[in-house]
Structures are given as C-alpha cells and as structure tokens.
C-alpha cells in the first residue's frame, strides 16, 4: 500500500521536506543505490520518532521504526557524516551518550547550560545558579549517595551500566560515531570536542524545509 496516511499525520512532514511514505516505498523497492543515497542524506534524520505513524498505518507498518533501522545502518557504515543532520549524531553522542556513561542519567541539571538553552528562560537560569538550594527545597538528593531524585549513582551500578554497554555493542557503537566524526574533524582541521561539537550542535544551512 502507498496510501500516505503516515505522511498526513507526521509532524516531521509538516515542518521539514520529509515524507515517510516515500521512505517506506524506497526501502521496499530495494534499489541499493537509492538506499545508499538515503543513508547519506539529511532525509532520514528529520523524523522525531513520535510513532504517530504506528497508530494510523492501515497496514501496521511503522515508518518511524524503519527510520530507526536506517539510522542505525547509516552509522554502522559511516554514512551519517555525509549529511548535516547526520553529523549531529556526534553532538548527541557527546552530550547524551557521555552523560549516560559518566553519571548514569541521560540528562542531569548541570548539562542544561543556560547559554546552550536560551529557550529554557529566566526561571531555569535562576535554578541553574542555585542548583543545591532549589533541589534541596524540593526534597531531592542532588549528587548525594542513597535514594531520592538526582542522587549520585553508586560506582558499582555505574560499572554494571558500562559493562552492559561493553557486552551488548553499545560501547563499540559510540566509538564508531566518534571515529567517523574524528575523521571529518581532522579533515576540517578542527578540534573534535570543541569546534566540531559546536558546529554539529548549532549549524543549520536552512535548506531543510
């Protein structure tokens, strides 16, 4: 089927030059060249993984899951660095991936730096300047051992988490993102963790709509 219901419901299709119906069609056609082009394109990085398409597809397809598979392959083959949106995987690895392995959380308050998050507004800025006071007031256990919100994860649990990444291929996957990105940063003669990170985090050619 090729009904386009997914495209009609898709929030990404509304704001980007993106069409999940066409993605599914391309994958089903199975033309290697076309698929390689897709894996190197910005297109596969527009989806928000909301899975609204899962609910609506009359054939029980999930374009969002097809996208997840394409994104995985694109990174395994190193194709993600060919597109602006694909290169952002380095920024995500740098921020979220490293937070998981260092702190045991995807996101922590100190990660939400006001200068990187102007949209968070002045209340967040105030919270950020008074993390200990604000979290104490709201009954948290910020960066302390034991139970409670925002507690420091104990070192044994952190070791287990890292070991899980090692045995399941998670570590290798993050290293692959790193090495492909390093290659591009070297070519551009810029530092990976500073200049390349900022570039992938902030660059927008404006050619995505």
């Amino acid at each position: 089927m090729n009904c386009g219901v997914c495209t009609a419901i898709c929030p990404a299709a509304e704001f980007y030059n993106y069409d999940p119906r066409v993605i599914v069609e391309t994958v089903q056609r199975g033309n290697e060249e076309e698929i390689e082009e897709l894996l190197k394109s910005d297109t596969i990085w527009y989806c928000g993984e909301c899975m609204s398409c899962k609910t609506r597809c009359p054939r029980c397809n999930t374009p969002g899951l097809v996208i997840m598979a394409l994104r995985k392959i694109s990174q395994e083959l190193g194709y993600f660095v060919y597109s602006e949106k694909g290169r952002q995987q380095y920024a995500l690895k740098h921020v979220i991936g490293e937070s998981i392995l260092k702190r045991g959380y995807c996101v922590t308050p100190d990660l939400v730096k006001p200068e990187m998050h102007p949209e968070q507004g002045p209340v967040w800025e105030w919270i950020y300047e008074h993390l200990d006071d604000v979290y104490e007031r709201t009954h948290s256990n910020y960066r302390q051992p034991g139970a409670g919100a925002l507690r420091e994860v104990d070192s044994e649990s952190m070791d287990e988490l890292r070991k899980i990444f090692d045995v399941t291929g998670g570590t290798e996957f993050l290293e692959k993102i790193d090495s492909c990105s390093q290659h591009v940063a070297d070519k551009e003669k810029i530092d990976l963790e500073e200049a390349y990170f900022l570039k992938t985090y902030m660059e927008n050619s404006g050619r995505h709509q």
Binding site: E49, M68, R71, K72, Q75, Q89, L92, K93, I96, G97, I100, G104, Y105, C106, V107, V153, S157, M158, L161, T168, G169, G170, F173, L174, I177
Partner: peptide, 14 residues
C-alpha cells in the same frame, strides 16, 4: 539508573 531511552530514541544506543 537511566533506562537510556533518550539515547535510544536519539539513535546512539542500540
């Protein structure tokens, strides 16, 4: 710990 869900849906966690 985290379930790593934000990493999974950012496609950096297999």
């Amino acid at each position: 710990t985290t379930c790593t869900g934000i990493g999974y849906h950012s496609d950096i966690v297999p």
